[in-house]
Design a protein around this nucleic acid. Structure first.
Lengths: 148, 148
DNA sequence: ACGACGAACTTGAATGGTTCAAGTTAGCCG
DNA sequence: CGGCTAACTTGAACCATTCAAGTTCGTCGT
């Protein structure tokens, strides 16, 4: 069952964002997608938001998603070679598994735990804030074919 | 000192590629960049190749780089939000550290070793061939400023 | 409640890395 | 040395994303 609007409204306010129909609907769409383990491109988010509130410009979709990412309510995923995807932000620092065949993105937990992955041997003076791990391979249905 | 052309020619042949001036020069440029720990975008590769052999179309640069990557002589890096970068392929499976400020990409070794990083807890039926780790942060010169 | 300020949205156009298509050139093998 | 095919060139198209200017609508203070 989907989260009530009240909860989402509070979440937006707590994040310091204005509560607008587009942002509320965008957040709802991402939450719904999370329940289905989906990762959505901007166009798909915009489309689903339109189903809820009637209209939303492409630019509006970018603005909303940017704001949600900025405030920590959503996470941006940019797998090499395909358009940017978004998912509702969750606390666990899970990683992603991308199919080289069809581009399917799946969530996966890191065996060794976040702490280890976050610690490279030398940071070269960089101040790190995130360790991103992406696994590449072929999904079950693409593993058989020889398609690129 | 740069590698001799003979060595690079052999490398191309061994990889099953035709030995053309553009490919030879492209490989030489990448090797030279590797010595300087540089990661080059397509445009920079094309420019440097032109300095060596006079001319190379943008398309030609893409073709050469794709061929080198395909045959394992080069590695493609696609940091989120910036154009594709290339580096001469090396055996060690090092990872990258990207500056959120200026986009500088630096090589870094993984503390825990490749084996661990390559083993997510569940592969969801995927056949994995690579684990890519990207560390995000701010380089020494960007760490001080508040710029995006 | 009302009014005003500024953020958020809309529309429309531009940008730029990458790719597609068609034609020419040049490695490689017999 | 000739022919086949991959490799390169030119020129145009693509499309996710961004920029710019104008309008709408949350929010906050009175």
């Amino acid at each position: 069952m989907p989260l009530s609007d009240d909860v989402l409204v509070d979440r937006l306010r707590d994040a310091g964002l204005r509560v607008t129909k587009p942002k509320l609907a965008t957040l709802a769409v991402l939450e719904e997608a999370r329940a289905r383990h989906e990762h959505l491109p901007v166009a798909a988010v915009a489309e689903r938001v339109r189903e809820r509130i009637g209209t939303l410009s492409a630019q509006g979709a970018y603005d909303c998603l940017d704001a949600l990412v900025e405030s920590g309510l959503a996470r941006r995923i940019e797998p090499a070679g395909q358009p940017t995807l978004y998912e509702a932000r969750v606390r666990d620092n899970h990683h992603h598994l991308v199919c080289r065949g069809c581009g399917l993105v799946t969530d996966v937990d890191c065996t060794v735990g976040d702490a280890l992955c976050l610690t490279p041997s030398a940071t070269n003076g960089f101040v790190l804030d995130e360790a991103e791990v992406t696994f590449w391979g072929r999904c079950p249905s693409c593993a058989g074919s020889t398609e690129a």
